[in-house]
Design a protein around this nucleic acid. Sequence first.
DNA 1: TCATCCAGTTAACAACTGTTCTCCGGAATT
DNA 2: AATTCCGGAGAACAGTTGTTAACTGGATGA
Lengths: 208, 208
Amino acid sequence: MSHTLGIRQAQKQKTRQALLDAALGLLEEQSLSSLGLREVTRAVGVAPTAFYRHFRSIADLGVALVDEALGSLHPMVRTTVSATRGIDERITRAVELIERHVATHPAHVRFIARERHGGVQPVREAVQAQLARFTDEVKTEVAKDPEAAGWSDEDLLMLAQLYVDQMLITSSLFLDALEESQEERERVAQVATRQLRLISIGRRHWLD
Amino acid sequence: MSHTLGIRQAQKQKTRQALLDAALGLLEEQSLSSLGLREVTRAVGVAPTAFYRHFRSIADLGVALVDEALGSLHPMVRTTVSATRGIDERITRAVELIERHVATHPAHVRFIARERHGGVQPVREAVQAQLARFTDEVKTEVAKDPEAAGWSDEDLLMLAQLYVDQMLITSSLFLDALEESQEERERVAQVATRQLRLISIGRRHWLD
DNA sequence: TCATCCAGTTAACAACTGTTCTCCGGAATT
DNA sequence: AATTCCGGAGAACAGTTGTTAACTGGATGA
């Protein structure tokens, strides 16, 4: 299935990726709505007009960045939330997985946290759409758990939302703790673990 | 105590407030890091150079906006979270209060949601500082509840954080629902209520 | 081999930005 | 009544921005 594309399209994708990478780097200390087209091309080393060969606008590039940051994350969610193993082990594993992902993709995490409520509408909508997909996936996974017997659809949805938001909050906290000490990171992990545990307990007694 | 200030300082505060209001309006469709000094003064109707009489920079104005948006909110928190009345009534009242606040101060809520993780460091830090104050207030209020007997300091903190984050998430959802139907707003209220109820249940069985 | 395609370049455009310095006129102080 | 103070205006600065048009040269396909 892997179609070997000509040296022409290969070069094009290469500079396209360079534009995305440069933009992501510049966005560590500003928001998308203040990112300039020339700023990005200058960082890559191409002419400003070359930008238009790949994106219609900065907002367009932003949407592409959203897909890059969240698109490849879906398989991870399924395997993590699924009801294998014990509860405590699952929680520990989930927190570890978040910490590792933040450590390996800090710029992506920062970008999503920043632009989720940012000033560029199409990007905001792209983030919301991806998060809605996540929520739905978590919901169907949660529904499989025997503990969810007798739960209404609305109850499942509110729990899934709670989990997704919790994941984002924890990611952001890990991100802030990245530049600090190892103890700080452990404290974040501890708090996140306890919060997930409390949610677990609430979940267990929901139908009382 | 109300010191009647001269007509000179009164005028100054008036234009200062006009700058803040204009900035807040412009920030509904962009982020602070892309807000221009001239843009703000133009909206107010004063010369660009007049800006420097009130703020050192746009970031400085942003910090002032954070204080305006969150500073006057502390008394509300205390009275809402405090352990008077029954649990369900308290939850309903809290959600109502959030909904009303978002409806009356949408621009402020949007600003905080946007700049909490935004591209301007001093503003980000100002938001974090105010939220830390909130968390601490919620924590001391939660600690007063008889249900919190035997809770460690770390447990109290993680619960307070959970409440504060939940408040922010709910605010943001209400904000999005403002431009939509009344049913949408009721659905947000319903989800938020259920989530708070689940947290309550988890809290009750925490020490099992 | 030759014509076509197309990613990237060059040059130029009007419009905009933050910041400095100098000045004005009315309020505040003596 | 005379003087100081100070919020705001005006003009000018070098530098930046997004977008257009026409062009170049190497890959592509007939």
